[in-house]
């Protein structure tokens, strides 16, 4: 029983890590490879989650949909919707560099959050959407405990398949000429332009591609919890946490992004278990101390490993001493 519980907890963490890894991979395309400071991850996460929710839930009064479609239609729809939302945003905002893009994208994510919260016809407003079907969740022939385990394992398998597919796709692109071109644009825009590369179009490509992955991450999250509410679009847990994962894991390195997601989520989740060791009369203070510990751990890792756990690998041109380390 004890070990079953630990196994269930591990499965749950692995599912969350997988979902966050998708978000971090998407961000890696934008920041790690194209140098785009997107601080509006939560917005694309929300678009994906809600699109999939609307497509796959049963018909509901008072809002559009649901259309009762299979979950994979919802997930593909989530990617398409996130990409469609990213397109005009990218078209307008990608001309801003770095910190300007960051504040612009934070603003857009906030506007998306307010729309999601306020437009009940679209999203059921502040109440959110529940009753989202979760694939491979029911194992009626099994006992409760094993069915629970099996449903988590099955969902983890799906998440892993999606993650591996996304990873292979992204990795292949980066090693292809496309990836070299992206890094060239990131590291020296002028030179890339002089060589006849369409810098703006390529950036837009990276932005849309990354956003689609974030949308997919949102959809996976909504189906796992069987619900999506505006509370999930909190900038702290849906944007900044992903940034921490990527920077800590190593921006520019896809495996680093996934490893970062794992390490940060493990710190995030397990720190609570550590602070629960405090005497019970401090049970509430322990939660504040936990946030302090998370902040402190972050400082330690950044202090001793500022280039990330897995730095960007040197590819091709080995004369470049530290590619990726000095863009701001």
């Amino acid at each position: 029983m004890e070990y079953l519980g630990l196994l269930n907890y591990a499965l749950f963490m692995a599912i969350f890590i997988g979902i966050y890894a998708l978000l971090a991979l998407g961000l890696n395309i934008q920041w790690g490879f194209a140098g785009l400071f997107n601080a509006g991850i939560a917005g694309f996460f929300a678009v994906g989650a809600y699109t999939s929710a609307i497509l796959t839930t049963e018909h509901a009064d008072g809002r559009i949909g649901g259309f009762d479609m299979p979950f994979f239609v919802g997930w593909i729809g989530a990617m398409i919707a996130a990409a469609l939302v990213a397109w005009p945003i990218g078209k307008i905002c990608l001309r801003f560099r770095s910190d300007y893009l960051a504040i612009a994208s934070i603003g857009i994510a906030e506007i998306i959050r307010l729309v999601v919260k306020s437009e009940a016809v679209l999203t059921n407003g502040a109440r959110g959407i529940s009753g989202i079907p979760r694939p491979a969740a029911e194992f009626p022939s099994m006992a409760q405990e094993t069915a629970y385990l099996a449903s988590q394992a099955a969902y983890l398998a799906i998440v892993v398949v999606v993650l591996v597919a996304a990873y292979l796709l992204v990795e292949r692109q980066f090693n292809a000429p496309w990836g070299r071109m992206m890094r060239a644009i990131r590291d020296n825009e002028g030179a890339a332009k002089a060589m006849g590369k369409d810098v703006e179009f390529r950036r837009l490509q990276a932005f849309i591609f990354g956003s689609a992955l974030m949308g997919l991450g949102g959809a996976l999250f909504a189906h796992f919890n069987r619900s999506i509410t505006p509370e999930a679009i909190d900038p702290m847990v849906a944007t900044f946490l992903v940034w921490i994962m990527l920077i800590l894991g190593g921006s520019g390195n896809n495996r680093g992004a996934i490893l970062g997601a794992a390490v940060v989520w493990i710190i995030w989740s397990m720190s609570e278990i550590a602070t629960d060791r405090l005497p019970t009369e401090y049970a509430i203070q322990a939660k504040y101390i936990r946030l302090f510990l998370i902040g402190l751990m972050l400082q330690l890792v950044l202090r001793f490993r500022p280039e990330g756990l897995l730095p960007e690998p040197l590819r091709g041109d080995r004369r470049a001493p530290k590619s990726g380390a000095d863009h701001t």
């Binding site: 920077i247 751990m297 972050l298 950044l302 000095d326």
Partner: peptide, 16 residues
């Protein structure tokens, strides 16, 4: 270091 590292560090400081 790249400035983004300090931005992330300041986020941790905010929590602390």
């Amino acid at each position: 270091r790249p400035k983004i590292v300090t931005v992330m560090a300041s986020l941790g400081i905010a929590l602390m």
